[in-house]
């Protein structure tokens, strides 16, 4: 439990750090962007009850965070990218990508290709997870603008 709360707090702080690194300036947007990071990791941890597969947990975390990003973009009237990029920071397979390259440098090609494939799958599940809500929101917007 203590480990989970630590992960959630640092996911929040890490997203905050990246939001600031990417020059987000308003305090309100900084807060919502970092809350997105916390939400993304929270969903990832919750999905652990249903599935042990990282690919599935990342996928659902990414779907939820994109829905959150699209909603916040409409509330705050700014591009959804702002929330999606910063909130996905705890999910991005940076560590995994690094280990892949580490094996490569160690000449351990079997481990490298295993880890590389895993990294790629994680990145794919995040990317595909982002795709669905974005398309649905775009479709909705088209329908609304046609009706007007």
């Amino acid at each position: 439990m203590q480990q989970y709360s630590m992960e959630l707090i640092t996911a929040f702080l890490g997203s905050l750090g990246f939001a600031m690194l990417f020059h987000v300036r308003s305090a309100e947007k900084l807060l919502f962007a970092s809350l997105g990071g916390l939400l993304a990791w929270g969903v990832y941890l919750l999905m652990g009850f249903f599935s042990g597969e990282d690919v599935i947990r990342y996928f659902f975390a990414s779907v939820i965070l994109t829905v959150y990003g699209e909603i916040m973009a409409r509330v705050e009237k700014c591009p959804a990218t702002l929330f999606i990029v910063t909130a996905s920071v705890p999910l991005i397979p940076g560590g995994s990508l690094y280990h892949t390259m580490e094996y490569f440098m160690d000449n351990d090609f079997a481990a490298c290709s295993m880890q590389g494939l895993k990294t790629l799958l994680l990145a794919v599940s995040i990317a595909v997870g982002m795709l669905f809500p974005t398309s649905i929101f775009q479709l909705y917007q088209k329908l609304v603008s046609k009706r007007q």
Partner: peptide
């Protein structure tokens, strides 16, 4: 190191490149 690696490693770029390809 992992904390410093997160500053340097292009994890976001990797994810976004896949997003570009999928769209």
């Amino acid at each position: 190191s992992i904390g410093n690696i997160m500053l340097l490693i292009p994890g976001i770029a990797l994810t976004n490149s896949l997003r570009d390809m999928f769209s």
